[in-house]
């Protein structure tokens, strides 16, 4: 069983940062909903508020990790220029997708959308974490502020969902691969 360095980094970007981020949204949305609807939910204890503070910071960190690893590690491999004379498109995912009308929209729509909309998530979640840290329990007295925090968390979730879904589907159609071979277990043939 082996993989390549680029495949490993792509997995770190998509499954490590991106996958964990999408999972983290479920917890963040549920806890923020508790704050947004105090009349229908049990109130957060001081310990839960401290936990949520750390949780929201971790969510923002995951979002930054996802976009930065995507833009500066994986994306350069994805959009690598095809050297003259090279006809094997295996190491050039963008060229590979654009070579056929059956797959070109994965780049023209999917990647073009994903590469921009994904950045909404870290910006929004940084703001949400800041607001939660700054206002603490005062959020329950400040409905417009908590509504904004919840709406931006939903928007960040949608943005991360779009980016994650297209990322997975694009990588299925034209995987980022290459670089040093990494043996995980077993014999290398």
């Amino acid at each position: 069983m082996q993989t390549t360095f680029r495949e490993l980094m792509t997995a770190l970007h998509g499954m490590g940062f991106g996958g964990l981020l999408l999972l983290a949204f479920s917890g963040a949305l549920i806890e923020l909903h508790r704050i947004c609807a105090p009349e229908r939910s049990s109130p957060l204890s001081a310990w839960e508020r401290r936990f949520l503070r750390r949780y929201l910071i971790a969510t923002a960190v995951l979002a930054w990790g996802a976009v930065l690893s995507g833009a500066y590690i994986v994306y350069p491999w994805y959009r690598a220029r095809l050297p003259q004379g090279v006809v094997d498109l295996a190491g050039y995912p963008q060229r590979s997708l654009l070579a056929s009308t059956a797959t070109s929209e994965w780049h023209n729509l999917g990647m073009e959308w994903k590469e921009h909309v994904a950045w909404f998530a870290p910006i929004a979640m940084t703001m949400v974490a800041y607001v939660f840290i700054k206002y603490r329990s005062d959020l329950t007295r400040n409905r417009p502020v908590r509504s904004a925090a919840f709406a931006f968390t939903v928007a960040a979730f949608v943005a991360a969902g779009i980016a994650g879904t297209f990322g997975a589907l694009i990588n299925k159609n034209a995987p980022v691969q290459g670089g040093a071979l990494i043996k995980i277990m077993g014999e290398t043939k």
Binding site: L44, S45, R136, S137, A148, F152
Partner: peptide, 29 residues
């Protein structure tokens, strides 16, 4: 309820924080 009265939880007791900082964070984001 405890959340509506911060003093009851022993955390963040005090006057309401002006919403200007939140407004700045929300609009700039």
């Amino acid at each position: 309820r405890p959340e509506e009265n911060p003093a009851a939880t022993g955390d963040d007791a005090g006057a309401e924080i002006p919403n200007g900082a939140a407004a700045a964070a929300v609009l700039s984001a």
